[in-house]
Design a protein around this nucleic acid. Structure first.
Length: 562
RNA sequence: GCGCCCGUAGCUCAGUUGGAUAGAGCAGCGGACUUCUAAUCCGCAGGUCGCAGGUUCGAAUCCUGCCGGGCGUACCA
């Protein structure tokens, strides 16, 4: 409708004269129903340009618009307040929209702005050093939903998980497994470590200083010992330990993600970027661009040229690259694969690092504007008022699996999605367990289940509605309100996708569920006279469709009964 | 010190490109089930939008400066 009205207003402005060609016509949905279905502030913004008072400009515009607009779409054009022009939709427009919605069914909400374009969404990207934590959960759910949103807006989407398997972190992991393995073979003296939270852990004396203390390391070592016995004691090679750990931990991670309906299309890892020379090529490229120099035995990137206070190390004294270097290399492979849009989902702790990556890509000749970084603020777990730290290196922390066990996958996803990525998330576990019944996700699911129940009931009493029902019978205030709400769905998804703001969707769906519940409360279906009952059944089906489609985008189930 | 995020009802948070009387859920109070699911609906109460300036027809929203909280500011990832 906006696309219909905009040219209409433009032509009226042209007739008025003296209005710049690049004047942008803003149309918005007013908060209050008495302000119509759409409103424009054009007259207000033209007041200074035309040197006239906004009210009189609005009157002139409205008069011409009334003569010009299609009455089957726009019912009224009114001037209100300081000079707003309010439009009201013709009811036929709503009924036609409702019919279209029903015809589209489970694809309603899809748009094609991204058609012909490919997008790569990189998310989770946790290194396989332990079970996923709650922060990873937020990442996974945000990334997955953004991918869904891009999918629904027409993009050809690829979901990818990148991890560092070549650096120090994995070496420490392997050493952790190794010392545990050696302990199993016997004769290894142990020592006691005291953790930040005051608890103590018994570890072999050879256990690395910053080793991984979790029980899962011991499990992996035990499995390895069962398979190989003492065979690995004589070797200095860490590879079998690293591989065993990586394999076991990845299996866990994938399992956890699957519980949240997160399925990646592919994985990328750092080692491959070393093996195929991509890292080397990036270093060469940056050097050719004159952006590197050697100092103190390390290779530096001149990030000061990008406005930073200090330069940044690309390759350490030890000859090992910092994590930034393969990160840049990884991104070049995204570009080389030809994606039109690349989205990275990172925790807020990365905000200082990604500009280096983007600037380096720009220096290498890539269009860095195609990369969009979604940063989310941290999740703080709180249990009984006590904050729970989420360091992977510590032994006891609440895992994502624990969370899913406690509140379920639907609640977990919804909780992470219902608020802006910019908002710090305080997750009180006790509250979540105790109040999961009150979680807003159940409100949406309940509305869906209710509609299913109506369908069951109709079948039970032998009422079959007319698929060609006369929708123009839907003139009750709550029916009209519900139709309007339902028709906003495609735009709601579009806004969510454009702004990388998944939380728009839960907010919108809550409004849908509210509008449906009000309709349900005031408008009976079964038992009404057949034509009206049929029309209302069609409306209920439309609501079910939007709820179902919306929940699908969020990766949340839409149960038939609760 | 510098960079980023946040500060809106008792609590948790919405408020897309600046719009008309700032919203929702929870908690509180009061109503509504002989009816298709009361996990619902209706009503009441609850606010110096952190503070102070500025920009303009109009600011929770944009700009500047403060205050408070978080995260960064590694040859850790």
């Amino acid at each position: 409708m906006k696309n219909y009205l905009r040219p209409q207003i433009r032509s009226v402005l042209d007739a008025l004269g003296d209005v710049p060609d690049d004047f942008e016509i803003e149309l918005e949905e007013p908060d209050r129903p008495e302000h119509g279905d759409l409103a424009t502030n054009t007259a207000l913004r033209l007041a200074s340009v035309l040197g006239d008072n906004p009210r009189s400009i609005a009157e002139r515009l409205a008069e011409r618009l009334r003569e010009q607009v299609d009455p089957s779409r726009i019912r009224s054009v009114e001037v209100a307040g300081p000079g707003f022009i309010n439009f009201r939709f013709a009811q036929d427009y709503l009924f036609d929209g409702l019919a279209d919605l029903l015809a589209e069914g489970d694809t309603f909400g899809q748009t094609d702005v991204g058609a012909g374009q490919s997008a790569l969404v990189e998310y989770v990207s946790a290194n396989p050093t332990g079970p996923l934590n709650v922060g990873h959960g937020r990442n996974a759910v945000l990334g997955d939903t953004i991918a869904n949103l891009l999918d629904w807006t027409g993009y050809d989407v690829t979901r990818e998980y990148y991890y560092n398997d070549a650096g120090r972190q994995m070496r420490v992991l392997a050493q952790s497994v190794r010392t545990r393995y050696e302990a199993l073979a016997g004769g290894v003296p142990t020592t006691t470590r005291t953790l930040d939270d005051g608890t103590t852990v018994e570890v072999p004396e050879t256990f690395p200083e910053d080793g991984y203390l979790g029980q899962y390391i011991i499990d992996i070592a035990e499995e390895l010992y069962e398979e190989r016995g003492d065979a690995l004691l004589s070797t200095d090679d860490l590879t079998p330990f690293r591989e065993a750990a990586e394999e076991a931990l990845f299996a866990d991670i994938e399992q956890t993600l699957r519980r949240l309906s997160v399925e990646m299309d592919g994985y990328a890892n750092e080692q491959a970027l070393h093996d195929d020379g991509t890292v080397e090529a990036v270093l060469d490229g940056l050097t050719d661009a004159g952006l590197t120099y050697e100092a103190d035995g390390a290779l530096w990137l001149k990030t000061t040229e990008f406005g930073k206070d200090d330069d940044t190390v690309l390759v350490k004294q030890s000859g090992e690259p910092t994590y930034r270097t393969p990160d840049i290399a990884y991104h070049t492979t995204k570009f080389e694969r030809g994606y039109d849009l690349m989205i990275d989902v990172f925790g807020a702790d990365h905000h200082a690092a990604y500009p280096d990556v983007l600037n380096a890509l720009g220096a290498l000749g890539y269009d860095k504007d195609k990369v969009d970084v979604v940063l989310y603020q941290f999740v703080t777990l709180v249990r009984g008022g006590e904050p729970v730290k989420m360091s992977t290196r510590r032994a006891n922390y609440v895992t994502l699996d624990d969370l899913i066990d406690q509140v379920g996958a639907d609640v977990t996803r919804f909780f992470f999605l219902m608020r802006s990525p910019d908002t710090h998330l305080n997750f009180d576990l006790e509250l979540a367990e105790e109040e999961s019944e009150k979680n807003p996700v159940f409100y949406l699911q309940y509305a869906h289940a209710r509609i299913c129940s109506i369908l069951d009931k109709a079948e039970e009493v032998g009422f079959s509605h007319d698929a060609d029902a006369d929708l123009s019978l839907l003139i009750h205030e709550d029916e009209i309100a519900l139709i309007k709400e339902l028709l906003r769905f495609p735009q709601a998804l579009q806004n969510a996708a454009d702004n990388r703001a998944p939380h728009f969707v839960p907010n919108y769906l809550r409004d849908v569920a509210t509008a449906f519940s009000q309709f349900y409360d005031n408008c009976r279906i079964i038992g009404e006279e057949d034509a009206l009952a049929s029309a209302r059944m069609r409306l209920a089906l439309a609501a079910k469709t939007v709820l179902k489609n919306g929940l699908t985008v969020l990766g949340i189930s839409a149960p038939r009964q609760m």
